[in-house]
Deep mutational scan, measured.
Amino acid sequence: MKVMIRKTATGHSAYVAKKDLEELIVEMENPALWGGKVTLANGWQLELPAMAADTPLPITVEARKL
Rank of each mutant, 00 (worst) to 15 (best):
P31S: 09
P58W: 08
T39L: 10
W44I: 07
G11W: 04
L40R: 00
T8P: 02
N30H: 12
A17S: 09
E22L: 13
A9Q: 11
P56W: 06
L46G: 00
M51P: 00
H12Q: 04
A52W: 06
M4V: 14
K7P: 07
L33M: 13
T60H: 05
G11C: 05
V26K: 03
V3S: 00
L33D: 02
K37D: 04
I59A: 12
L24N: 12
V26I: 12
S13I: 12
M1Y: 13
E47W: 14
V61R: 00
G11R: 02
V3K: 00
A32M: 13
V26W: 05
A32V: 09
A32L: 13
Q45K: 12
A63Q: 02
G43W: 02
L48M: 08
G11H: 05
L21F: 14
A53Q: 10
G43S: 00
A9H: 10
G43N: 04
I59V: 13
T55S: 05
L40H: 00
A17P: 14
M4D: 08
V38F: 04
E22S: 09
W44D: 06
Q45R: 12
A50I: 13
L46P: 00
E27L: 09
V16G: 00
T39Q: 06
E22I: 09
L46E: 00
K18N: 14
Y15H: 08
T39I: 12
P31A: 11
P56Y: 07
N42D: 02
A9E: 13
E62K: 09
L21Y: 08
A63S: 06
E62Y: 15
L40I: 02
A32Y: 14
L48V: 04
T55H: 05
E62N: 12
E23A: 14
L46R: 00
N42M: 04
A32Q: 14
M51C: 02
T55I: 07
L48R: 00
V61L: 08
T8V: 11
R6Q: 11
K37L: 10
G35P: 04
I5G: 01
T10G: 12
L46W: 02
I59G: 01
V3I: 11
A9I: 10
K18T: 14
V16F: 15
A53D: 12
M51Y: 06
S13E: 07
T8K: 07
P58Y: 06
Q45I: 15
K37S: 09
A53M: 10
V61Q: 02
A53W: 13
K19C: 15
M51S: 04
T55D: 01
V26N: 03
T55Y: 04
K37Y: 11
E62W: 15
L33S: 02
I25Y: 00
A9F: 09
K65G: 09
M1I: 15
Q45E: 13
L48D: 02
A52T: 08
L33R: 03
V61C: 04
N42R: 00
L57Q: 04
H12I: 13
L66R: 05
S13V: 14
K65W: 15
I59S: 04
H12Y: 15
G35F: 03
A63C: 11
A63H: 04
A17M: 14
L48W: 03
T60A: 07
L40Q: 01
E62F: 15
A63K: 01
R64W: 12
A41P: 02
V38P: 01
L66N: 06
N30Q: 10
V61E: 01
K65D: 12
M1R: 02
G35W: 01
L46I: 12
V38N: 00
H12S: 03
K37H: 08
K7M: 10
K2I: 14
T8L: 08
T39E: 05
K18P: 10
E23Q: 12
V38T: 01
V61I: 09
S13C: 13
W34G: 02
G36C: 05
I5Y: 01
L66D: 05
K37C: 08
K18L: 12
L46M: 08
W34K: 02
G36D: 00
V38H: 01
K7E: 08
A50G: 09
N30P: 01
M28N: 07
N30D: 06
L24H: 11
E62Q: 12
E22T: 11
K18I: 15
A53G: 09
A52S: 11
A32T: 14
Y15K: 09
A52Q: 09
G43R: 03
T10D: 13
T60F: 10
R64L: 13
D20E: 11
M51V: 06
E27Y: 14
E23N: 07
K19Y: 15
K65S: 12
K18Y: 15
L24D: 14
A50R: 11
E23M: 15
A17W: 15
D54F: 06
N30M: 09
T55C: 05
A9P: 12
E29W: 06
L57D: 04
P56C: 07
D20G: 13
A41V: 04
G43K: 02
R64F: 13
A14K: 01
E29C: 06
V61G: 02
I59M: 10
D20Y: 09
D54S: 10
A9S: 11
K19M: 15
G35M: 02
E27S: 13
G36K: 03
K37T: 12
P56N: 08
K37Q: 07
M1Q: 06
L57E: 03
K37I: 14
T10R: 12
A50W: 15
A9W: 07
E47L: 15
D54E: 10
A17Y: 15
P58C: 07
R64G: 05
G11A: 05
M4K: 10
A63E: 03
E62L: 14
E22K: 06
L40T: 02
Y15T: 11
P31Y: 07
G36P: 01
L66S: 08
T55E: 04
E27C: 12
A17K: 10
L21V: 13
T39Y: 08
M1H: 05
P58H: 03
I59E: 02
E29T: 09
M1T: 09
V61M: 03
I25T: 04
M1F: 14
E27I: 09
I25M: 00
E29L: 06
E27T: 10
V3N: 02
M51K: 07
W34L: 04
K19P: 10
A63N: 01
E29G: 05
G11E: 03
V26G: 01
A63Y: 07
S13R: 08
A17Q: 12
T8F: 06
M1W: 14
M51G: 03
E23G: 05
K7R: 12
T8A: 09
A63W: 04
K18V: 14
S13K: 09
E62V: 15
K7C: 08
V61A: 02
K2M: 15
N42A: 01
L40Y: 00
T10A: 12
L66P: 06
W44F: 07
T10N: 14
L48G: 01
E29Y: 06
K65M: 15
N30S: 11
A14E: 01
G35H: 01
A41S: 11
K18Q: 15
N30G: 05
D54Q: 07
T60S: 09
W44L: 07
G35Q: 06
V3P: 00
